[in-house]
């Protein structure tokens, strides 16, 4: 359906914006390494199911793309364009996010089974993975426009999945409570950012937090 297609496209675009920003400016200023490491974890734990579950060629290719691009971005950030200044303000305690997601995945899953726990873990972790990045924005008070486009596209992906879930609930009777709940949590976390993005970036102002 259109929402899911738009969501996936927006997810894809967010990664391309990020890669392009890093390659062109040859800098990772303002980008949170911790958030990027969390995304590697999210993609690895959710998408390694491609080794034992086949959905479609589209699904497989997208999974491969997200795993490899997220690892590549972390590689660029650590080895190629290391930025100690940015690292110094990247101080969000992600161990709590990882630990909390792990505990929640043990409690909430469709079956107490390795693959299902990993899937649940990835959903919880994804819902909060942007926090170190938003935290960094708050500390610096402003961001490069491209960085805000990246965050917007990434947030739009899960937000667009919400009407997709409603659509699938109506048309197929399919309801994935875990994905829906964590997707809503994720959208709420982004809501403040969306608001500022809409009021400043789209109207041509610099991204500055009030």
């Amino acid at each position: 359906n259109i929402f899911r297609a738009a969501g996936d496209l927006s997810h894809l675009i967010s990664i391309l914006i990020l890669l392009n920003t890093i390659q062109k400016s040859r800098s990772i200023a303002g980008i949170s390494l911790k958030t990027q490491i969390l995304y590697v974890l999210v993609f690895l734990t959710r998408y390694l199911d491609l080794t034992y579950r086949y959905v479609s060629i589209y699904n497989t290719l997208m999974k491969l793309f997200f795993i490899s691009s997220s690892i590549y971005i972390v590689y660029l950030m650590i080895y190629k364009f290391k930025n100690t200044e940015t690292e110094q303000i990247d101080t969000f305690p992600i161990e709590y996010l990882i630990g909390g997601s792990f505990i929640l995945s043990l409690i909430f899953n469709y079956k107490f089974q390795f693959g299902e726990i990993l899937w649940s873990f990835s959903l919880w972790l994804e819902s909060v993975a942007i926090l170190p990045q938003l935290f960094m924005l708050q500390r610096t008070g402003e961001a490069r426009t491209l960085t805000t486009h990246y965050i917007f596209a990434l947030g739009a992906y899960r937000t667009l999945y919400i009407p997709n879930w409603i659509f699938r609930w109506i048309s197929e009777g399919r309801v994935d409570y875990l994905a829906i709940f964590t997707g809503i949590v994720q959208t709420i976390i982004y809501s403040d950012f969306f608001y500022i993005y809409y009021h400043r970036v789209l109207k041509g102002f610099k991204f500055e937090l009030p």
Binding site: H11, N59, F66, Y110, G115, W119, R174, D176, A179
Partner: peptide, 10 residues
Amino acid sequence: TESIINHDEL
């Protein structure tokens, strides 16, 4: 093993 929900999304 089949999962309860078919994980076919990204």
